[in-house]
Simulated scan of single mutants.
Amino acid sequence: MARSVLQSALADLADVPATSRWVRNGAVRLHALDYGGDGVPLVVLPGITSPAITMDFVARELTDLVRPIVLDVRGRGLSDSGATYTLDDYASDTLAVIAGLGLDRPLLLGHSMGARIAAAVAAGGAALRGTVLVDPPMSGPGRDPYPTTLAAFLGQLAEAARGTDADEVARSWPRWPRREQELRARWLSSCNPDAVAATHAGFETENFFDAWPKVPAPTVLIHGADSPVVTAAGVTEARAANPAAQFVQVPEAGHMVFWDNPTPARTLLRQSLTDLT
């Protein structure tokens, strides 16, 4: 299954109020969207099949508070593919972006896979102002599997490779704003199937709770009230494992928190970031 960036997808960048930045981590060239401004840097780490541009509707609403910099995680968007796709690889890429762009004690915001990356970076002792983890996968060895199967992800990538549209995306994600359905239709083909498969395997072999207790305050864990990824039992365990953390629940939202219920999710995120800055 080929990875490709469509011309129509590249044209979307003309409507994004951000500048492309490039950083190298070894042989891997990493792309990020930098929204600029004088605020505290906020490095945004998206999910398993979410190129940077798909977080635009979140990032652009934060520029009065912070300087959002949204990473195309390796194997997605305009960033290179890598030889491997471990949590350590993703954490190393994040540190390379922080160093390469000269970011002084940034905040980290991660959704899903990105939340796991943020936790790994913070637990490793990086100089950060704080972290916001949004619906991190709590699957891992000896735990319930991640609720979306690899076959489902690969099926979506196959649809994108043959050519999909917003109507087809809407059948899987009917609650999403139309623009976000359109962006997913145009950008999903930029996701490397090997990267997705390796990351999905990591959801089962790399334990979030190895890093989470070591994530220093201030940290906020935001989760969807209806998420199958961060369940009520998962919240209880996470509270016990990191008592200094703050917890925020977004009503009427599943795992795709910002897409499922955009306005409350962004409002609660703004409140969390205000507290951190």
Rank of each mutant, 00 (worst) to 15 (best):
A127T: 02
M113C: 00
D72A: 14
F153Q: 06
R116F: 00
D89I: 03
S189F: 10
I117H: 00
G75A: 13
L10G: 10
S190C: 12
N242I: 10
G37T: 05
W212D: 04
D275K: 15
L10I: 11
G234L: 07
G130H: 06
A197S: 00
F153L: 06
E168M: 07
W259D: 12
H111P: 00
F203H: 04
D104G: 01
S50C: 14
V73K: 12
A59T: 02
W212C: 05
H111R: 03
A83G: 14
V196P: 04
D89Q: 07
L103D: 06
F57I: 00
S112N: 09
A198Q: 13
S272I: 07
T63K: 02
T84C: 11
T94Y: 03
S172L: 14
G75I: 09
V250F: 05
W22G: 09
D210Y: 06
G130N: 08
G36N: 15
T164E: 13
D88M: 06
M113I: 00
E180H: 12
L269K: 09
V169W: 09
R105P: 01
L128R: 09
L268H: 04
A52M: 10
L30G: 05
A52P: 03
A151N: 10
A244I: 07
G234A: 13
Y85M: 11
G102Y: 06
P262H: 10
A115I: 04
H111V: 08
T277D: 10
T164F: 13
H223F: 11
L273Q: 07
T199N: 04
